[in-house]
Design a protein around this nucleic acid. Sequence first.
DNA 1: TGAGTAAAAGTACGTTTGTATTATTTTTTA
DNA 2: TAAAAAATAATACAAACGTACTTTTACTCA
Lengths: 296, 296
Amino acid sequence: MSSADQPSAEELLEHLSQLYPDLSPQLKKAAAYLMENRVEFALQPIRKTADAVDVAPSTFMRLAKTLGFDRYDSLRQVFQRSLQEGQGNFSSRADSLIELGGRCEQQGVVAEMAGCTYRGIEELFGEEMVSRIKQAAELILASPQVHVLGLRDSYSCAYHLAYVGSVAMSHIRLVRAQEGSLFTELARIDKGDLLIAFAFHPYTRETIEASRIAIEQGAQLICITDSLRSPLVPGAKVVLEVQTETPNFFPSIVTSITLIEALLAVCVARGGKKMLTKIRRFDQQMEDLGGYYTEE
Amino acid sequence: MSSADQPSAEELLEHLSQLYPDLSPQLKKAAAYLMENRVEFALQPIRKTADAVDVAPSTFMRLAKTLGFDRYDSLRQVFQRSLQEGQGNFSSRADSLIELGGRCEQQGVVAEMAGCTYRGIEELFGEEMVSRIKQAAELILASPQVHVLGLRDSYSCAYHLAYVGSVAMSHIRLVRAQEGSLFTELARIDKGDLLIAFAFHPYTRETIEASRIAIEQGAQLICITDSLRSPLVPGAKVVLEVQTETPNFFPSIVTSITLIEALLAVCVARGGKKMLTKIRRFDQQMEDLGGYYTEE
DNA sequence: TGAGTAAAAGTACGTTTGTATTATTTTTTA
DNA sequence: TAAAAAATAATACAAACGTACTTTTACTCA
């Protein structure tokens, strides 16, 4: 047990399973339901819960008191909280990392960062996200041209996607915005093309304007951004939301980079052999041109 | 949309994010809360939710109706259901993301990537690494000039470090290598300066040569690379080794980016107030110059 | 058999809930 | 600048809620 005040759901269930054999028949029914339906239990009011087991509401009140709670709601809150925390694999490790970090100042910062990173990545590999990544990959493979746009703090993302992506898929290119060339570059976006745009808060004005223009020109948009409220979202075909929170003064791009690499992996997996030979050819060329370092 | 009867939470949030720009101010506040606190929204009654946003309860009712629901509870139930499902599929499996992989081909790739990413980051936050990060930060803060070099697949790393870093520390600059300007740029590296160089296998020839020249010129070197046998290591003052392995055809830069952000965090933590005012001034300037997007 | 005693169900009540309605403020339009 | 419209806040109320209390049931033991 960690704290008598607010036991975790797991601790509680373990405690309950020990008490179980000695409970009265009705309390057993109630306890059994709780053990096997924690989520429903957390969400439903006492009356609905009681109905589900065909038991009087007061039975669940007695159960709460048997477990040492003063009120029914305290019991239910335990399970609501466990829902909120999501009890994810990474998050729990992250928490322990943070606890560990308190020792010295810098380690604290780093540990907190680690926590954010873990949480961000965990979200990234959820089912919903994976299916979106697949959608995005589909779009990339189907489009005649793919333009990648990211400015300022998002430029690293755009560059990474465009550089690595173009090795495997020659129809991917980076939208450059040096010396005010952005809007000239936009002219190269044709109807039916795909634009992949990156923007994190505070959003760079040009990125927003550029993607609106692209949509007007008949292009499709995939946006990678930090919130569903981002000005990039309206009009986007696929929205890839990433976690950018961090104790730092700038938004973290770690999850975005991870997303990019996952996206590329899926593209290659779908792209088949054609793509593999393309990659091999690129490697060969680099070697022939002396682009790579070889010892002595 | 799949079913008009009971849209999924994700569909709903996407729908909402499309509507978002046209909502009234108060409805935006409510919508924003919903988009970023789905779990709390599912658990709390309307009054608590309204209080959290400092909005009248009726605002949330209007939000529900705006989204096409007849009653507030129907909206909340959508998120309650998504809680139930999310809980069942994921966390109850509890162990590792990799287990999740087998289901379909693409998900397998993604899951394996998740594993690599996780391992890489875990290594990064070990004690040994943290102490090296501190050494590196010390060097950065002590040097009169810091040059950041990374080419090809490492350019995103170099750019990220230099761009974000220069916001807080004006003595950080990116070494550019466009149109063969690399060696001209190297002339700017003085004795006592610091060079931070990135290179991953297969190592780009110019990066290796450039850092050797820099050392000859009396500069110190921090290298961020994927192996202790990397040609960048000899002569380096601090070596930061990162994990780049991944099922992909290119080395992953996720851990490098994470390292960069940790490094910056430590720099800022040590840099004190001077740095904070510098960051604030940058923000102010960007806002004044209209660099950031603001709604309407 | 019938008092005694847990356990369970039922009842009643003050709160809190969602919601329709009305009032107020803000914004738009003429 | 005044009127009209829209958006927001306040109010009121019935339904549903948790919970204390009472009644009924089931069982134990003189």
